[in-house]
């Protein structure tokens, strides 16, 4: 019997795609070459081997290579706590405000101009005044995260609520929906996809502002380790913390995505 004709996508390739690995491979070889031949001293760029050892030691503390040995979990926990708190604040305020702005002219006129005026000040520009208000430390960091993450969350939630088709609104009203029903049964689910995108962006921004907040002098946290290591001349620790932030940030993003997959309808439009 002949093979049935299908218009499906071609079967997934069995062998690994090598192309994405070319650039990292080249970078790594350059790194090895530069440090191995002694062109760059260790205090500017440590060798890859040393970086890996430091990373392992930073997490497990096997070899007691430096003062940061085995402290990863403590610092990561401190950072995560700040991100979680700041991001939660931003989401709790940003999602309802954004959705209301998107579906009600009145809220839009009330909120939108002010929000966008405040948004014109770059997040970093809030650092000095935050230090005056909240002092150096965790509260400033959480404030900066909440403020910076609020904007993408708000803007995208508003976009989601505005993407509601007028026909859905008519259909819901015709089936007996009150204004309140309309918000919870149409605006909210229809705007959920865009809101979820906003939350992801907000989480990314949270990690950026975490580092900014922690650079200013908190005793713990991944950003604090970075700054501390710079003063102690531990370049490899700076690199390892950068990597750690990337990994933890990506993990939190994946966690959020997994959460959305449970909540969002399987057939988004």
């Amino acid at each position: 019997m002949a093979e049935p004709l299908t218009l499906d996508a071609p079967a997934p390739r069995r062998c690994l795609d090598w192309l994405p690995f070319v650039l990292p491979g080249m970078l790594l070889s350059t790194w090895l070459l530069l440090t191995g031949t002694g062109h760059l001293p260790e205090y500017v760029l440590p060798s890859p081997g040393r970086a890996v050892l430091t990373a392992v030691d930073f997490v497990w503390g096997r070899w007691q290579l430096n003062a940061y040995s085995g402290t990863f979990l403590g610092h990561a926990a401190a950072s995560l706590q700040r991100v979680a708190l700041g991001f939660a604040l931003a989401a709790v305020v940003g999602v309802p405000c954004g959705l209301l702005t998107g579906c009600s002219q009145w809220t839009r006129r009330l909120l939108d101009p002010t929000v966008h005026a405040v948004r014109a000040v770059p997040g970093i520009g809030w650092l000095p005044i935050a230090m005056v208000w909240f002092g150096v430390g965790t509260r400033t960091t959480v404030f900066l995260i909440a403020l910076a993450a609020f904007f993408p969350i708000y803007v995208n939630a508003a976009l989601g609520a505005r993407s509601v088709r007028p026909l859905w609104v008519r259909a819901a009203k015709m089936l007996g929906a009150s204004r309140r029903d309309l918000f919870f049964t149409v605006t909210l689910p229809a705007g959920l996809t865009a809101t979820a995108d906003g939350l992801r962006l907000g989480l990314g921004v949270s990690w950026a502002y975490l580092v900014l907040g922690e650079l200013t002098g908190v005793p713990d946290g991944l950003g604090a380790v970075m700054m501390d290591a710079r003063m102690n001349g531990q370049v490899e620790i700076i690199l390892v913390t950068m990597l750690a932030i990337a990994v933890v940030g990506r993990l939190s993003d994946l966690l959020l995505l997994a959460l959305f997959r449970r909540v969002l309808p399987p057939q988004p439009r």
């Binding site: 088709r165 026909l167 008519r170 819901a172 009203k173 015709m174 689910p189 309808p265 057939q267 988004p268």
Partner: peptide, 19 residues
């Protein structure tokens, strides 16, 4: 105003895609 005593069938598809 609109109400459930009058059911309206629209020209276009007006089902809720998330339900």
């Amino acid at each position: 105003g609109p109400g459930p005593d009058r059911g309206v069938a629209f020209q276009e598809d007006a089902l809720f895609p998330w339900l």
